[in-house]
Write a protein that binds this DNA or RNA. Structure first.
Ligand code: FES
Ligand code: FES
Lengths: 146, 146
DNA sequence: CTAAATCGTAATAAACGAAGTTACATGAAG
DNA sequence: CTTCATGTAACTTCGTTTATTACGATTTAG
C-alpha cells in the first residue's frame, strides 16, 4: 500500500517555519521539501482550516504558524489532516454475516484498537516545541562536529 | 484505502479448516471466502512455506492444517505472510540529509515502533485455539437464539 | 489602474501496490 | 491415460497518494 506521508511533510514544513520566523511561500516550502507548490498548498490548507497556520495572498503573501508551539501536538496535526487511516492491514469484510469472520474480526479489531490508542497517546505527548528543541540539539551537535 | 487483508483471510480459512477437519480445496475455500482459487493458493502457499499447513495435489488433494492450534498465534501468521507493513502512515523520506527531517523522523519512528511492538505482542497472545473457542461460543449463542 | 506575486482549487495524470484473472505446467489417484 | 488439484507466471483491474497543469481570485506596488 502507498503510505500517507503528509504528517511527516507538514511537520517538516512547520519546523522550518518555526526556525525561520518569517513568511514562507508555498514555492519556497516546495523546493525545500522536494515537492510541488500545489501539494504544499493543499496540505497546509488543512492546517489553516484547523487554525494552526495562516495564509496570505498576493505579493508578500505566504504561510505562517498561527499556534503556540508548546500547545500543538502531533495528534492535533493528525486530526487536522482528517485522521487518515493508520493501519495498512485490515479485515477483509467489515460487515460479515459469517460467525467465523465475526470471531476473527473481533480479535483483530481489538488488537488494532489498542495499538491505535497507544499511538495517538504518543502523538498527543509530542509538541512542536519539543520537536524544535530536538532539532536544535541535533543542530548544535552537528556544528560541534564540523 | 486499499488495505492488506491477507491476515484476516487466512484466519478465516484456517478456522473453517479447523471446524471441518477434512481436506479443503482452494476452490472450496475461495467460494467460501468470496475470492479466487488462485488468490487462495498464493496466500496459503506462504503458510505452507512456514510449515503451518500442508497441500496435496491431484484428486483428493487440497489443504490441511499441519500445526497445533494451541501453538499457532496471529503473530506466526503475520510472519508467515512476510511481515507486511503495518502502518499506512510513514515518513516522507527514510534517508534524510536534513536535520529537521531527522528530528521529525526520530519522533514518528519512536511512536510507530512502540505501537507496532504492542500490536505484535497482542498478536502473539492469540492462538488459533482461542479463536476457534470464541467461534464456538458465538455459534452456540447463535443456535440458542434461533 | 495595471502588473506582478501569491494563494485557492479543479481536473487530470502518474506511480504504486493489492487483489483478481487467465493460462498453462506439474504431479497424484484411479 | 484421464482427471483433478496444486504451483506459478503474466497480466489486468482497482483504489489511493502524489504530482502536474491550468486558471481564477486576491493583494501589493508603482
Ligand atoms: S529540507 Fe529540511 S532542511 Fe530544508
Ligand atoms: S464464509 Fe464460510 S462461514 Fe465464513
Amino acid at each position: 500500500m502507498k503510505r500517507d506521508s503528509r504528517l511527516s511533510s507538514v511537520l517538516h514544513a512547520l519546523l522550518h517555519m518555526a526556525e525561520q520566523k518569517e513568511l514562507m511561500t508555498s514555492e519556497q516550502l516546495a523546493i525545500c521539501m522536494c515537492t510541488n507548490p500545489v501539494v504544499v498548498r493543499r496540505t497546509m490548507g488543512l492546517l489553516r482550516d484547523a487554525g494552526l497556520v495562516t495564509s496570505a495572498r498576493g505579493p508578500s503573501g505566504g504561510w505562517m504558524i498561527a499556534a503556540d508551539l508548546e500547545k500543538v501536538t502531533l495528534r492535533d496535526l493528525h486530526e487536522a489532516l482528517g485522521e487518515p487511516a493508520i493501519f495498512a492491514i485490515g479485515n477483509r469484510n467489515e460487515s460479515p454475516g459469517c460467525l467465523v469472520e465475526q470471531a476473527v474480526n473481533a480479535a483483530l479489531d481489538g488488537a488494532f484498537a489498542d495499538a491505535e490508542a497507544l499511538l495517538l497517546d504518543r502523538f498527543a505527548k509530542v509538541t512542536l516545541a519539543k520537536l524544535s528543541a530536538d532539532f536544535n540539539r541535533r543542530h548544535a551537535a552537528h556544528r560541534a562536529r564540523s
